[in-house]
Simulated assay, not measured.
Amino acid sequence: MRWGQGEGSLPDGCTWVQDPRAEELRDYFSLTDVALRRVVEPERGLYMAESEKVIRRALGAGHRLRSLLMTPRWVEEWPDLLAVAHEQGAPIYVAEPTVAEAMTGFHLHRGVLAAMHRPELPSVGEVVAGARRVAVLEDIVDHTNVGAAFRSAAALGVDAVLVTPRCADPLYRRSVRVSMGTVFQVPWTRIDPWPDGVEVLRAQGLAVAALALAEDAVTLDHLEAAPPGRLALVLGTEGDGLGRKTVEAADLVVKIPMGGGVDSLNVAAASAVAFWAVRARGG
């Protein structure tokens, strides 16, 4: 391993990186290897926040830094981020773009990455207490879809999100980025076991609606016209949709009316439509 001062002087507390495989930087290795990161990040109790805006949202939610990785041109741009890192005892690493790319597997065009301490997830009861609208993401495997669903949830009045055991990690880098950091804004946790968790939601006072294509499904217009006071809306995986047991356990099944010979929408698009239709109105 070689450490140096780099070109020009760095602010106090910053460490210049020349070796992309330095052991101190292992949190940042192979960020594009999804299979590896699914295991590594939860095991180490960390997640990655990409871009200054996302890092600020994470910090605003009370999350703590493990370290920062920056390219030189951005070091002077965000002195307050450096100050927070100093306050929290988090190392600040600075590397040329080619070194950062060799380390992470992609070009650091947003100028900064943060390894964050992964917070402990709350219980389902804590997350849904008082919630009028809850989204349940069942086995959605694409991190982009998870992030997009969280962004829609934040924008369209969903109070909480629950993810099933096989659902993609909302704190995976791509999910966080696509959500624009709203994964830190909307309360969420995992609901396990599932679909037995439908009974847990019902015991919490929530009506459970499954978004699925079924012969006995009512249209979203019907649900929008007379929504229950407290509602959990369940959306299913990209390929097959909701599982049969989930549909059978729900209080009602709902479908979005389709035209143009299309039978369904991408789950991220469907979530936005459904969240808007069932948004809680009034006090």
Rank of each mutant, 00 (worst) to 15 (best):
S9D: 13
Q18Y: 04
Q18K: 05
A22V: 01
E24V: 01
L31W: 03
L36I: 01
E43T: 12
E43D: 14
L46Y: 11
Y47W: 13
S51G: 11
I55Y: 07
S67M: 07
M70L: 15
D80H: 12
L81Y: 12
Q88G: 06
V94E: 07
T98A: 15
A100K: 09
A102K: 07
G105P: 12
F106V: 11
G111F: 10
A114H: 02
H117I: 11
L121S: 12
P122I: 08
P122L: 08
V127S: 05
I140S: 04
I140D: 04
D142S: 08
T144I: 12
V146Q: 11
G147Y: 06
F150A: 03
A153S: 06
G157L: 00
D169S: 13
P187R: 04
R190V: 09
P193R: 07
V198M: 03
V200R: 12
R202C: 06
Q204L: 11
A210W: 07
V218N: 08
L220P: 08
H222D: 12
E224H: 11
P228A: 07
G229S: 05
R230F: 02
G239Y: 02
G241V: 01
G241K: 04
G243C: 02
V247D: 04
A249C: 09
L252D: 02
I256V: 15
P257W: 04
D263C: 01
S264C: 03
A269E: 10
W276Y: 15
